[in-house]
Amino acid sequence: MIHDDLYATGLEQRRRMFGPAGAEGQVEHTTDLNDKVQDFVTRVCFGDIWQRDGLSVADRSKITIAMLIAQGKSHEIRVHMRGALANGISPLELREIVVHSILYIGIPGAVEGLRALDEVLAENGISQDLDGESGRTATDTGA
């Protein structure tokens, strides 16, 4: 791998989002099999694209999660939900991204997103009591 400014910036972004395991833990275990992928992810994805003006890192997290849910990429959904929490995205915002996805990708994709969010919140000790919506009744809403 080329260790230049893009690499250093990308590694730092990975560290902020995914901790040492998602930064040094990934690149230090690079092999001839995966070196091109790790180089691309570190330098281009996180060192360049995630650093561009026009969208905040938080917005990029939201967009990435929505696209991963739409593609049904289970592992990456979980990875990026963890990163989104580190980027300041609230559990409520993550839930709303999943709920919104029902409209555009359907229930099965949204359910996979909810499974991922459930796991990520549990592993981080974050309550699923987000807004009290589940306890509301028709009387509460005026229906």
Rank of each mutant, 00 (worst) to 15 (best):
Y7Q: 10
V98W: 03
G125H: 07
D129F: 00
G113H: 05
D131F: 04
G72R: 02
I126D: 02
T139F: 05
D48N: 10
I107C: 07
T30Q: 01
M17R: 10
Q51F: 06
D53Q: 14
L33I: 06
R14A: 11
I69T: 07
L85F: 11
A138R: 14
E76K: 04
T64W: 02
G72N: 09
A138E: 15
F18P: 05
V99R: 06
S127K: 04
E12C: 10
I105A: 08
H75S: 07
R95Y: 14
C45V: 15
L85I: 13
T141Y: 01
E28I: 01
E96Y: 04
T9L: 13
Q71D: 09
S61C: 11
P20N: 15
G72D: 08
R136N: 07
S90N: 02
G125C: 00
I97R: 09
L94H: 09
G142S: 07
V99L: 15
D118M: 09
H29S: 14
R52D: 05
V79L: 13
V44H: 12
P91E: 04
Q26V: 15
A58W: 04
R16W: 01
L92W: 10
D35T: 03
M17D: 06
R82C: 11
Q26I: 11
I49E: 11
V27R: 01
M17Q: 10
V111D: 02
D39T: 00
M81L: 06
G47V: 07
I107Y: 13
E28D: 12
A86K: 07
